[in-house]
């Protein structure tokens, strides 16, 4: 359950103040499949970063599962990210020197999960992405679609409630992109809250609820989908 009320996020660019988010209020129910669309500079990535606790609003209140998370310390926010939020990036952001399995293992290491349980959970996460046979491969030995699937395995290995995907298909060819979208939708139908940021209308329109942003404001909201 995500509740944003009157969120502002200002950036100082030179001597000019830029309102990346200008009074956004939004409620996202548990298990929703949501897309945020809009041209670049519309504030959609800033909104995603705020929801993902990678950034703090200039003003406004953000409640996650009823808890005011804007008031949390860096350390507490890190724990929330680790336990409840998964990220999928356009550029995959896999650590190049680590194997697929080691990349997936990272959130578990940070959470202090004992090694015995880690191996099993990594295996399950990779198997869910049909990557069991690629676990010992380094990212450079994987195709783009495989890399993004490793990233999704990593984002879901902690079984978060929210999955944030920022242009997840931006660096992929059409077919791999379709695969990745199917996997994300599969996760959504299993109950995860899925938020996809994209400027690709074809992908954005697949979401049950669609937001359009312009100049830091929510321009349109297709309304709460059937969660």
């Amino acid at each position: 359950m995500i509740e944003l009320s009157d969120i502002h996020r200002d950036f100082q660019v030179g001597d000019q103040k830029v309102h990346a988010l200008d009074g956004v209020s939004l409620t996202i129910g548990a298990g929703e499949y949501l897309s945020i669309m809009g041209p670049s500079g519309s504030g959609k990535s800033t909104l995603l970063n705020l929801i993902g606790l990678l950034d703090r609003p200039t003003s406004g209140v953000y409640r996650l599962d009823g808890q005011d998370v804007t008031a949390l310390s860096d350390r507490q926010q890190a724990e929330v990210r680790n336990q409840r939020i998964g990220f999928v990036f356009q550029a995959f952001h896999l650590v190049p020197r680590l194997t697929a399995a080691e990349n997936v293992e990272l959130p578990l290491i940070l959470a202090g999960v004992p090694p015995v349980q880690r191996g099993q959970r990594v295996e399950q996460a990779l198997a869910a992405m049909s990557l069991s046979d690629r676990s010992r491969h380094k990212p450079e030995q994987l195709s783009g679609g495989q890399r993004q699937r490793v990233a999704i395995a990593r984002a879901t290995v902690m079984q978060p409630t929210v999955l944030m995907a920022d242009e997840p298909t931006g660096n992929l060819d059409h077919k791999s992109g379709q695969d990745v979208v199917r996997i994300l939708e599969q996760l959504s139908s299993n109950g995860i809250t899925l938020i996809v940021v994209t400027h690709d209308g074809e992908i954005g329109r697949r979401a049950r609820r669609q937001l359009h942003m312009l100049d830091g404001r929510l321009e349109s909201d297709s309304g709460t989908g059937n969660a």
Binding site: R75, H93, P107, A111
Partner: peptide, 16 residues
């Protein structure tokens, strides 16, 4: 930088 940013996104605390 990217790797450190990623670790943060994955839930690494400043201390970690």
């Amino acid at each position: 930088t990217a790797e450190i940013g990623l670790l943060k996104a994955l839930g690494a605390t400043p201390r970690q």
